[in-house]
Write a protein that binds this DNA or RNA. Structure first.
Length: 423
RNA sequence: GGAGAGGUGCUCGAGUGGUUGAAGAGGCACGCCUGGAAAGCGUGUAUACCCCUAAAGGGUAUCACGGGUUCGAAUCCCGUCCUCUCCGCCA
């Protein structure tokens, strides 16, 4: 969430920036400013009263020691009123703080200057096109047909075992999954990321830390008996490693990568958009996460974009990079780039990665801070990106590489699959 | 799941109602010493919020978390969470 300091000191700027996300923050932020003034004045009163109380208590202690019981009892009598006052003021403080937090949780991150104006997906800016379209045989098949033809993925079996959106990968289909995961992890390690293998189930505190809770509660599978959530992305457990910590500046940027299964309820999505691998309830993804200083975070973002781009290039997929407009950005990001690969058979672009800088928005909730050269403690910037999510990569690989003699595996992947063709 | 023990600062560890934000030790940082280092000596070493502010200074809160008792709680009581030991179960 946004910091109180930013909201109160740069209220107009925040409102103007939020407008780019088509969020009208005037009323909410105005209330934060009011509540914060109340909070401050209440604290002055409360602190004064508490100080007086502490003084009296010490005095009474001394009187007892000196055996002046009568005087001590007299002093005691004075504390009653003060005690009530402290209670009232304390409740007032807590209430104001809670209300502020409640409001701030509803306010999205402010987009940075580099974010273009726009209402929705149609206004995203194509930053770059790359790769080349492949010549496909006549009447190319969509991946769900190819998956059936070569017996790679069984969607019906998944329905039997679990439900729609939980496919069963078989034979070379399953091997391809492992190959991609290992390929992505090795590439990340070569780029300097430390691999971690976190839990795929997290507690509520972690959900709040990265912003899935409270606003996106319905997106996550919830184990009610234990009050735990299945992660929608490795971003959640990995970023939460840095919850409630103070890092040393020289340890930044922290670069982590992780492979996990990801679980998303995707309530209310039906139709051809979600056919086959296009949108699943469970999928594999390798995620990269960075914790950085505010001064360096945009440099980090660039490096992450370059890393993700190198992956789609090595997989020889036609791709494009989109700079998301204000209206299409997520709640928590300050800037976001999407990578899409072209699915020749479906005649559409598929999003395979999303690389974002959250600036201090997540870090504020996480209380992820660092000590700078002047020993001052500041919020870190957090960033993450998919590198990459498997299903749509698999969809694009199958569709774009289909030939009359089978599906060709890109050279970079062969050392991992140990086969060159799916036939 | 059953029984017991326990959760104190960067770490270890003392502390069972009254200058304890917290002894002591270690670690770390800086200074002195040294040709350089070690040893030694000295100093410093939490976070948040608020007041005041040029700087300095000051106040409040925090000893897992939340609540209660009390003039006063790290210390007593209740609840929650977590860790450890033993038993049970188990890939």
């Amino acid at each position: 969430m946004l910091t109180i300091k930013y909201v109160t000191e740069h209220t107009e700027e925040a409102i103007a920036r939020l407008a780019k996300k088509h969020f009208d923050g005037r009323e909410l932020l105005g209330r934060v400013v009011e509540l914060n003034n109340l909070r401050k004045s209440t604290q002055v009163e409360l602190d004064t009263a508490s100080a007086e109380m502490n003084r009296l208590s010490k005095e009474i202690g001394l009187l007892f020691k000196e055996g002046k019981k009568a005087e001590a009892d007299a002093a005691k009598a004075k504390t009653g009123e003060l005690k009530d006052k402290i209670k009232v003021l304390n409740d007032q403080m807590t209430s104001a703080e809670q209300q502020i937090t409640e409001i701030l949780l509803q306010v999205p991150n402010v987009p940075c200057d580099a974010v273009p104006e726009g209402a929705g997906a149609q206004d995203n800016v194509v930053e770059k096109m790359g790769g080349s379209m492949t010549d496909l045989p006549e009447n190319p098949l969509p991946h769900w047909e190819l998956a059936k033809k070569y017996d790679l993925i069984d969607f019906d079996l998944g329905v039997k075992i679990t439900g729609a959106g939980f496919p069963v990968y078989k034979g070379k289909g399953a091997q391809l999954q492992r190959a991609l995961i290992n390929f992505f992890l090795d590439e990340a390690r070569a780029a300097g990321y430390l691999e971690v293998m976190p839990p795929t189930v997290v507690n509520a505190a972690s959900g709040y830390g990265t912003g899935q809770l409270p606003d996106k509660e319905g997106q996550m599978y919830h184990c009610e008996v234990d009050d735990l959530y299945l992660i929608p992305t490795a971003e959640v457990p990995v970023t939460n490693i840095y919850r409630d910590v103070i890092l040393e500046e020289k340890s930044l940027p922290i670069k982590n990568c992780a492979y996990t299964q990801c679980f998303r309820r995707e309530a209310g999505s039906y139709g051809k958009d979600v056919r086959g691998l296009n949108r699943l309830h469970e999928f594999s993804k390798v995620e990269i996460v960075r914790i950085d200083t505010p001064e360096h975070s945009y440099e980090s973002l660039k490096e992450m974009l370059a890393h993700v781009e190198s992956l789609v290039q090595k997989l020889e997929l036609p791709y494009r990079i989109l700079r998301l407009c204000g209206g299409d950005m997520s709640f928590t990001s300050a800037i976001c780039f999407d990578f899409e690969v072209y699915s020749e058979a479906q005649k559409r672009w598929l999003e395979v990665s999303s690389v974002s800088n959250f600036e201090s928005y997540q870090a504020n909730r996480l209380k992820c801070r660092y000590r700078n050269a002047d020993k001052k403690i500041q919020l870190c910037h957090t960033l993450n990106g998919s590198a990459l999510a498997l299903p749509r990569i698999v969809a694009a690989l199958l569709e774009n590489n289909q030939t009359d003699k089978g599906i060709r595996i890109p050279a970079a992947l062969v050392p991992y699959t140990k086969f060159e063709w799916i036939d």
